[in-house]
Design a protein around this nucleic acid. Sequence first.
DNA 1: ATTCTTGCAAACGGTTTGCACATAC
DNA 2: GTATGTGCAAACCGTTTGCAAGAAT
Lengths: 147, 147
Amino acid sequence: MLTMDEFIKTCREKGLNVTYQRMVIYKSLMQSKNHPTAEEIYHMVRKEYPSISLATVYKTLETFAELKLINKVTHLHDMARYDADTRPHHHMICIYCKAVYDVHDERLNRLPLPDVDYDGFQITGYSIQFEGVCPACSQKFQRKASS
Amino acid sequence: MLTMDEFIKTCREKGLNVTYQRMVIYKSLMQSKNHPTAEEIYHMVRKEYPSISLATVYKTLETFAELKLINKVTHLHDMARYDADTRPHHHMICIYCKAVYDVHDERLNRLPLPDVDYDGFQITGYSIQFEGVCPACSQKFQRKASS
DNA sequence: ATTCTTGCAAACGGTTTGCACATAC
DNA sequence: GTATGTGCAAACCGTTTGCAAGAAT
């Protein structure tokens, strides 16, 4: 959540050309509260810059996310994944290979809910996504880092 | 995670015909530890039942998930969503309209990690997904329930 | 016999890609 | 001037759909 000046400075620092498109896209995302999709951002941005292309929006968002300027909320969005284990449990996702492991830990099933009624939102349950590095990728990564 | 007998019984109870395809798909998912995709299940199932079609696998998994026989791990998998707020925070997802709200609550940022080194998996962070009903859908739902 | 399910192929929709042109530096 | 980014259209790929044939009840 940067000011426009900070955004421009950060782009320069990260070796990213500062274009009008990038500024408008960042501003739109910053002003939006709903975690919009690329298509939604495209429609917002077109009001201010009608000639922008959808492909540019996709490329720009992906670039921002790689440089951690923004976050992709949906880590595992590429393909649906299923689980036959319907007990309440949590998941651990390898940031490299996207493997999903189960976390069964009773303590995590008794979190205090943030508020029974948060902004009028009625919470019925939750699940925790842990991020990290799986054993296999940990090996690869160490090998890569030490070579 | 049902035995095959329980699975058959549950299908009958839920008004689902018991077919060989459904049994093989459920068994494959049950034996798999990696939260497989539809395509992965398709390949596993084909070893035991080569003539099965990918469309059947998709339809079957969706049917199972609707009846809560299995879980879809990826709730928001349909489209990528982005967020300009890079501070650590959590999300609340409306199960009806899939709207995503932010949850900023300091207490939730200090969870005890399940184990520093869980099965060789190095955890670097986490985020919590709360599920529930947003104010707008709550209204719609109440109206529907009381009419 | 009726209803539900399957398999196929075609359609769909979100996302990516290749490439020529334009822009930032 | 060179490297980088943009826009367009086509390709891609995971998923869904319509429908005729087949299986479960």
